[in-house]
Amino acid sequence: MDIVVSHLTKTYGTQRAVDDVSFRVAAGQITGFLGPNGAGKTTTMKSMVCYITPDSGDITIGPYSIREHPGQVRRNIGYLPELNPLYEDMPVVDFLHFMAALQQVPKREIPGRTAEMIRLCGLTAEKHKKIGELSKGYKQRVGLAQALIHDPAVLILDEPTSGLDPNQMVEIRELIRTVGKSKTVLLSSHILSEVEATCDRIVVINKGRIVADGTAAELRSTASGRERLRVRIEAPEGADVPALLQALPSVEKAEWDADARACLVTAIPDASARNEIFALCVAQKWQLTEITGIETSLEDVFRMLTTPS
């Protein structure tokens, strides 16, 4: 099932939490939803699961609209809220039975579904423990198990790895990848490496508006828009290599990086400086020992998109 968000707007008092947001999450994709705190990620996700009512706009999950078919939308969505609230007084197995019943899983199928979720989420040894006695990592697994208990077509995960240690993060990420093979998944996160590793596509939201939408590679090229090179040249003593590189028509900026012991060159937009740098070295009879493209990290892209220039 596709998720289609159309012109979604939600205002709290005078603050516009979400401002005319539109995007689509294709069926079978894992999509990352990125943005700084207060950007509107959680508001958008809560609107998708019909927990809050947007002021205008609509969201459809497959053929169902949050405004016209909230019951059907909820039936087709598995949702893991940001703080993963659970009934801590309940044993894991009872909680999953309860959630399955609420999700209208047929009574005879509940024990089977519960057992399958316990196995899939690695909760076998903990299934009779009260949820309050579990570690944060296991609680997160219980949260995922309850979101998956009715085998939903769409999974919405709000910061599924927040607060977990690195080992737990890897485990939960692996679990999301496993279940995400057959579902439409939208997950929000602050951890960019996680989004890059887990997601097929990334949607970036800032101040309630979508500022980027594409694959990690597309985002990098869109955000940087210009070539960056690390250049190592063996030149005679006293030669001002950065200044001569800077003088090339295709080079916008060249600076010496003492740590890398190389020149960092930024080309002008939509141009490559490689040929001119090579020609300069030939003309000056310098030895060009390295010329490597520097990839813009997703962190750089995120900062560029979400901080005022």
Binding site: P85, Y87, L102, Q103, Q104
Partner: peptide, 13 residues
């Protein structure tokens, strides 16, 4: 306070 209201009211209920 615990946020379980969100878990409940996002179920088909």
């Amino acid at each position: 306070k615990t946020g379980t209201i969100e878990t409940m009211l996002t179920k088909p209920l």
